[in-house]
Amino acid sequence: MSDTLSRRGFFAAFRRPFERRAAPVLPPVIKAEQPAAASAPVAKVAIVQGRFCIALTSFCAACVERCPVSGAMKKERGMPMVVADVCTGCGICHDVCPAPRNAVLMLPRRQPSTPQPA
């Protein structure tokens, strides 16, 4: 994928037009919350808790779609996986996860790569 088409570009712009448009004639728009890690001082890494993830039952892939870092998330047999070494800990995947129990945990980054529970 070329630079002009990077995911980062898309999602940097993802909120912009809506914050401008968000004072509409129409009812107040519920705003997406800001990334949890934006103000957190500790370096974080995301992990997906498989048992809470609804990718295989509701065909959700919001985290994979919205992760701004190319290669930080991949799908394995339909399930999202975080590549810990690439993940920047931005927390967007956590914020967009619509599962009844949020399936993305943001953990403090300790080892270079965090094992994932199945």
């Binding site: 002009t4 088409l5 990077s6 570009g9 898309f10 993802f14 909120r15 997406a32």
Partner: peptide, 20 residues
């Protein structure tokens, strides 16, 4: 959070559109 228009990467490239 909001609507969007999907298009093919080649079409976007031709038009010079960046993602988002």
């Amino acid at each position: 959070p909001h609507s969007y228009v999907e298009m093919h990467p080649e079409d976007a490239r031709e038009k010079g559109f960046t993602n988002g």
